[in-house]
Simulated scan of single mutants.
Amino acid sequence: MSANIHPTAIIHEGAQLHPSVTVGAYSIIGPHVSIGAGTCVGPHCVIEGHTSIGDDNHIFQFASLGAQPQDKKYAGEPTRLAIGNRNTIREFCTFNTGTSQDTGVTRIGDDNWIMAYVHIAHDCVVGNNTILANNATLAGHVHLGDWVILGGLTGVHQFVKIGAHAMAGFASRVAQDVPPFMMIEGNPLAVRGFNLEGLRRRGFTPERLKAVKQMHRLLYRQGLTLEDAMQAIAALLQEMPEAAQDIALMQSFLATSTRGIAR
Rank of each mutant, 00 (worst) to 15 (best):
A67D: 04
L199I: 05
A67S: 10
A15Y: 04
P179H: 12
D111G: 00
I131P: 02
A243D: 09
H12D: 11
R107Q: 12
E48S: 14
S257Y: 03
F62V: 01
P7S: 07
G198L: 14
V148G: 08
W147Y: 15
G24A: 08
M183R: 10
D71L: 00
S34I: 01
D102P: 00
L254H: 03
Q222D: 13
G223M: 11
L209H: 08
D146F: 07
F194Y: 15
D246C: 06
E239R: 14
D56N: 12
I120G: 07
L237T: 14
F159D: 10
Y220W: 14
A75G: 07
C124E: 02
V156N: 08
S257L: 11
A116G: 07
N57G: 01
A75S: 11
E197W: 08
A190P: 11
V142E: 01
P188L: 02
A166H: 09
K213D: 15
M1H: 13
V125K: 02
G145H: 01
I47M: 07
C45D: 05
A164G: 01
A262Q: 10
Q238S: 14
N195Q: 01
K161I: 06
Y74A: 02
P188F: 00
G169Y: 04
V174Y: 10
D102V: 05
I5Y: 11
A235G: 13
Q245R: 15
A168D: 06
F60I: 08
D55R: 15
I162C: 11
A234G: 13
A133Q: 08
G14Q: 04
H119C: 09
M183H: 05
S34Y: 04
T205A: 15
H119V: 05
M240C: 08
T258N: 09
T256P: 12
E227F: 09
L218I: 14
A75P: 02
A175Y: 14
H216M: 12
E91N: 04
